[in-house]
């Protein structure tokens, strides 16, 4: 093999290895993204003919003035604001428990991670039964505590709480895994030193575990904010395929889905998608900014 061929091979080879990834990225991420952006400016866009009435901000103006969309934005916001901190807080407790060196801890670890490998829809149906006002497990447990039955599913105002409870449960295992791996990366010697000085478990948790875990907590907050902002599939099993019992619980992605598949209004659906993207983008950037200030070392 001549020297020139060899150097040519050197250039082609890495490109060949990288190409499947770039191929996928271009076809399934980059192209759709640009296309959605373009469609969002086309009023009354028709997918089949490719025709449209006007090029402009009409779709955006419609969406941003649409009460249903604003309501969806509010619902999604409430969902994110409650689900992310609650699940992170609970996951922190569970991850700490699962990080103890106890007999049979592997069994508990498996139990906690099991929801991760089950389908959200299948589990959602189980939750629907558990939420049932008359014979559901949740109201049954509450009755032992002398709390009268709550209309989780059939009273519209309660629907958001029902969704939040299911949502917290749904992202808990993934959050626990991330936090647990973060915990296991902390050098146990720090705990030994602190214990030698007589530090209480709570003191160690507050002054050593939390600061050293803060990069992981930041990552968890970003990932969960993004994933919960896209809440949509959780609605189907619980509310029989509708956004809340009285169509009262539109979320942003459900709204987009509704515009696209049901109303066949692609331009407006695309505009709503772009708005969601911009909101998430801004949220992520600000969270990264905050995390920089958190970083202790």
């Amino acid at each position: 093999m001549s020297r020139q061929q060899f150097s040519l091979n050197n250039k082609i080879e890495p490109i060949l290895y990288l190409s499947p990834f770039f191929f996928g990225l271009i076809i399934w991420t980059l192209y759709p993204f640009i296309n959605v952006l373009l469609i969002s400016f086309k009023e009354n866009y028709n997918l089949l003919t490719g025709s449209y009435k006007n090029l402009g901000l009409g779709n955006y103006i419609y969406v941003l003035n649409n009460l249903k969309f604003l309501n969806a934005l509010r619902n999604t916001g409430i969902y994110v604001i409650f689900t992310v901190p609650i699940s992170t807080f609970l996951a922190l407790i569970f991850a700490n428990l699962l990080n103890q060196k106890l007999k049979g801890i592997a069994l508990f670890q498996t139990a906690y991670f099991l929801p991760l490998v089950t389908s959200a829809t299948a589990i959602g149906l189980v939750w629907k039964l558990m939420f049932n006002t008359n014979f559901g497990a949740i109201n049954q447990i509450l009755s032992y505590l002398n709390i009268s039955p709550i209309h989780w599913l059939d009273y519209p105002k309660n629907n958001i709480y029902t969704l939040i409870i299911f949502g917290v449960w749904n992202i808990l295992p993934f959050t626990i895994i991330l936090l647990l791996s973060g915990l296991q990366n902390i050098n146990p010697l720090y705990y030994t030193v602190a214990k030698l000085d007589g530090a209480s478990d709570f003191k160690i948790f507050r002054r050593i575990t939390i600061p050293l875990l803060s990069p992981t907590i930041g990552l968890v907050l970003i990932i969960n904010t993004i994933s919960t902002s896209k809440v949509y599939s959780e609605l189907f099993p619980i509310f029989s395929g509708r956004p809340g019992i009285a169509d009262n619980l539109y979320t942003v992605v459900y709204y987009i889905y509704d515009l696209f598949y049901v109303k066949w209004d692609l331009g407006k659906a695309a505009a709503a998608s772009v708005i969601l993207f911009l909101i998430l983008f801004a949220l992520t950037l600000s969270q990264l900014q905050i995390q920089k200030k958190w970083k202790h070392y």
Partner: peptide, 17 residues
């Protein structure tokens, strides 16, 4: 913690944060 000792480890184990 009740022995009134001070310990220094080989890799120091200073709290990084």
């Amino acid at each position: 913690q009740h022995r009134e000792i001070g310990l220094v480890f080989q890799n120091y184990a200073l709290y990084p944060h």
